[in-house]
Nucleic acid binder design. Structure first.
Length: 413
RNA sequence: GUGAGUGUAGCUCAACUGGCAGAGCAUUGGACUGUGGCUCCAAUGGUUGGGGGUUCAAGUCCCCUCACUCACCCCA
């Protein structure tokens, strides 16, 4: 094999592509009905943008971005959508509150595994300029409705509050006091995590680490008064909205910019990558990127992971009927074309057989193409002025007068 | 970046302790000259991922390398 696609990328075609397009179009309708506008931001951005938003010392920035340099300027293929949307919001002087959604490829240079690619599709939404707890709850409810719409099943909703920098600072001290004597019991990764992004230790998959953390103080129980009040109200609104959720005090986020409410939607049976949708509040990011000091929140869903969880036939895709035109000799070409055009104009799928070959061979082709109906045209048909229409499933076959064919077609389609 | 597993025909996979590289499906042709699927017969199809080594002999053992898969890190 001479050429191969780059590691972690996919060639998407036929049914798979149709399913993705279907999800995308459902998403568009869904978000537009909710008053959101679609935004397309560039696939690449200046590298600084993500260092500042996602976090200087997250792995995404340190080792997972596709960085390239042109004329001494550093660019990256975007690893996520939020930073770009905020940048665009600021740069285009949009007014808050703004409701924006996006659909597009993101890029991360990770080792691929199940449900993980180096180029992957995300659908995301951002609600810029709303700080009230009602909107936290509404976004969770919106995410749930979206998954319901595309008929994802068996997902669980986990929520938590990771507070603001003020409560986190006090909490960090408390956690350190608890963990200091136990540091030698946790894995190397956790020791490193504690230095860089200390909340992430709760994400560790190591069981002995988790045992240590079970008794550790949680950020959720150490929120400042305002954050606590906010979180309480978010949960109250979720109850009013009849959203079933699990409160997971160990739930944290990998990106640096999150504050207060965070949530993840998980589905079992996906291997290690069981989070299909995630989001939360990021009240400080807008200002950090040079915009006004306004609170924001959002979520994003990984399309590939989503598709892994949906049964093959979902989302429903209307199948067009397939036709195959058999001509019994080159001199029937014009009539074959005429038949084909009639079918295609009425939104049917139609391909032509090679009139130089036998009817047997053409039928075989038609069969392999998974044809619904075959139209046969040859000397007999010419003489008597009809088309022979063969139903490939039942094998039934009958002559249809040329004049009646458009009418007959309508019934078949 | 780290670890484990797997690479044999277009696809799915066999091949004992190192001893002639095979089967099913698919493809092509025929049985069957304007009628596909089913059946039967036959044919085509291979640098065993690549390179090196050990050996009389390597798909099999050793080393290197590439790719894929899963997991870790990280994350949707």
């Amino acid at each position: 094999m001479k050429y191969q696609r780059p590691k972690g990328t996919r060639d998407i075609y036929a049914r798979e592509l149709k399913r993705i397009e279907k999800i995308n179009s459902l998403a568009r309708e869904f978000f537009e009905a909710g008053g959101y506008i679609e935004m397309k931001t560039p696939t690449f951005e200046y590298a600084e943008l993500f260092a500042r938003s996602v976090g200087e010392n997250t792995d995404i920035v340190e080792k997972e971005m596709y960085v390239f340099e042109v004329n001494k300027r550093k660019y990256v293929l975007r690893p996520e959508g939020t930073a770009s949307v905020l940048r665009a919001f600021i740069e285009n002087n949009l007014s808050a509150p703004a409701r924006i959604f996006y659909i597009g490829s993101m890029f991360r240079k990770e080792r691929p595994q199940k449900g993980r690619y180096r180029e992957f599709l995300q659908i995301g939404v951002e609600l810029l300029g709303e700080g009230a707890p009602f909107y936290d709850a509404e976004m969770v409810e919106q995410a749930k409705r979206f998954l319901d719409l595309i008929r994802a099943r068996d997902f669980t909703i986990e929520i938590n509050s990771i507070g603001c920098p003020a409560c986190r600072k006090l909490y960090q001290k408390k956690l350190l006091m608890f963990l200091k004597p136990k540091m030698n019991q946790v894995c190397e990764d956790c020791q490193r995590r504690f230095q860089r992004n200390f909340l992430r230790i709760f994400d560790c998959k190591n069981e002995t680490c988790q045992q240590v953390y079970t008794d550790a103080p949680k950020i959720t129980d150490n929120l400042c008064e305002q954050c606590f009040e906010h979180y309480t109200q978010v949960k109250r609104f979720l109850d009013s909205l009849s959203v079933q959720y699990i409160e997971n005090k160990k739930l944290v986020r990998g990106l640096d910019y999150y504050t207060r409410t965070v949530f993840e939607f998980k589905i079992p049976g996906l291997g290690a990558q069981n989070t299909i949708l995630a989001g939360g509040r990021y009240d400080l990011l807008m200002k950090q990127l040079g915009g006004k000091d306004i609170p924001c929140l959002g979520w994003a869903v990984g399309v590939e992971r989503l598709l892994l969880t949906l049964p093959q036939h979902l989302p429903e895709i209307k199948l067009k009927k397939k036709f195959f035109v058999i001509g019994m000799g080159e001199r029937f070409i014009n009539e074959m074309i005429k038949i084909r055009n009639q079918i295609q104009n009425k939104d049917g799928i139609c391909i032509l057989g090679d009139p130089d070959t036998t009817i047997k061979r053409q039928l075989k082709r038609a069969n392999r193409f998974d044809t619904d109906f075959v139209i046969i045209y040859g000397e007999d048909e010419e003489k008597k002025g009809y088309y022979t229409v063969r139903n490939m499933q039942s094998g039934e076959q009958k002559p249809v007068l040329k004049d009646n064919f458009p009418e007959y077609l309508k019934k078949l389609l």
